[in-house]
Structure formats: structure tokens, C-alpha cells
Amino acid sequence: MKYNKSIIKLSALLLLAPFFASCEDDEAATPQAGIIIDKTELGINETMTINFEGVADQVSIWTGDEDHDYELRSESNTGFVVNKGLFTYSYSTPGTFHVVCIASTYNELATDLRQDTCSVWVRVIDDQTEIEKLSCPQILYDEVFADKISDNDWVMRLPRKVKYRTASPSISLSQRLRFYINSDSTKVYVGGELFGTTTKYDLAETQDIHVVSDFGSTRDYKLYTVQYPEFDEFTINGVEGELGRSEFDYSAFTYDITLPAGTDVSNVVPVFTLTGDNEKAYIGDSEQISGSSTVDFTQPVTYRLVGVSPDNAQAVAESTITVTVNFE
């Protein structure tokens, strides 16, 4: 009997032995977190590439920005699963973010779970101070864009009046502005005050624009406004004509003047005044002086009017007026 018992014991032990052995084999491997990150200083929306270089069955990465903060993992923040050891990401907001990598291993029945973590800080910088476009968004129904004349100087060319249907309402120099900058965080100051989308700015004055990026870099611009010059009055032999506007092009005008039949217009001296102070009239390249320059009006004559900003000789607005003489 005793002999039999020990046989049972022995065989039970023998049976158990492989059981234990297999248990030991099924233990999870030791995880090792390790990442290679291509850069730790990034711009907005710049791609960051992370390669996982450790040992793990599964890898997740917490990028540290909104909704992906490892510290807030118990508050419904989530990480990203890494596939094939490669993870790419980009940040849409500036800041300093804690990137955490979790390497985990587990055995087949998930009775043994192990984790290892490593982390790195990345800094996302937004130093965008470049104004891409600048406009007056409400010139009647039109949005009129300013032109860049040098790195830091913009010129806004505005009409004095805009033709709309049969009317020609005047355009004020007190206007809203609109800045197109490739950043949500950059701040713009106009004349020392924080820019407001509905604030009206007096464009009769040259505006100082100060742009501050989130990173702290600054850049100063100047916005010069020049109105397209027009004839305020234009007479030949004391007869006044009518100014015609184009609804499509604020710099192109026509001027029709009707004189008594038989008038000799080959050698007349028109009298005119221009609307603005810093404006001059030319035919071709020769300057025209009101009441002194003689002009041949047998064919339509195109005047070139040039207005200049008092603060910057480069900021000019040029318009053309084609004067046509008709006869009664």
C-alpha cells in the first residue's frame, strides 16, 4: 500500500512539475521604455517623430497637451497607441508639454502586466509675427487689401467714393481693419492699443502696428493710407464736366465734358483742382499745372494722378482719368 501511495505522490509531483514550469514561462517579459525623438523644440503644426526603441508588447504615448496629459489619466485624458514603433504628432498650441511613453508587457492570460515609463519635455514655440495679408473689410461691400511696399510697410489704397447701383456713397477714412496672420496666439496692437475686429481706426493718420508673438518676438509695421486722387473740379473754358466711376476699379475714372459746337480744343488750358493735398496730375510724365499747361483735347486725354502719403514717399496711389470732350 505504502508503495502504491508513494507512486501516486510521485506521479502527482511529476504532473505538477510541468504545470509550474509552464507558469514560469508565461511570465511577462520585462518592459523597457525608450524613445528617440527627432526634436524637442517645435513650431506650431510642425511634425514631431518619435521612434520607440525599447521592449514592449504595447506602447502608448501621452503627448501632454489638452486631453492627452498623463498626469490627468484618471480624468478621462487618453494616450495614443503606437503602431510599429513609429509615432508622429504635432501641436496646435504653443507651450511646454510633457511627453510620456508607456511600454507595457503582458503574458498570454494577462495575469501578469508590467509597465515601464520614460518621458521627455518638448517645447512648442509660436513666434509668428508675419502679417500675411491686411485689409479694410468693409469698404461698402468690398474688402480692400493693402499692398506690401517693403518688409515692414503696407500701403492701403482707398477710394473716396464707391459706385454702387446708381449712387456713389462716400468712403470714410475711419475704417475697420482685418489682419491675416498664421497664428491664433499672436497679438496685434494698433496705435498702442490691442487690436479689435470691430474698432474703427482713423486711417487719415499713418498707423503704427506692433505685432507680438506668443514666444515674445515682436515686429513693427506701419500702415500708410493713400486715397486714390480725383479731380475735385475740372473745367475747360469755364465749362464743367461729369466724373464717371468704375464700380470694378477704384483707380480708373472717365471725365466727359461737353463744349459748344465749333470750339477749338486743340490748344486749351484746363483749370482743375485735386481733392487731396499731396496729389499731382500728369499727362504721360509731364506734370500739369492748373490754368497754365496747355493740352490738345481733339482726342481723349488720359491724366495720371498721383497721391503720396505725407509720411512715406514710397506709399503712392495712382489713378487714371480719361477726359473726353464732346460737342453740343
Binding site: I139, Y141, F145, E247, Y250
Partner: peptide
Amino acid sequence: YIGGGYGYMRD
């Protein structure tokens, strides 16, 4: 539609 400057026409 009514004639206008570049921005108005585009809109």
C-alpha cells in the same frame, strides 16, 4: 448681381 471692387465681386 451688382458690380463692385475685387473683393465684392469675389464674394
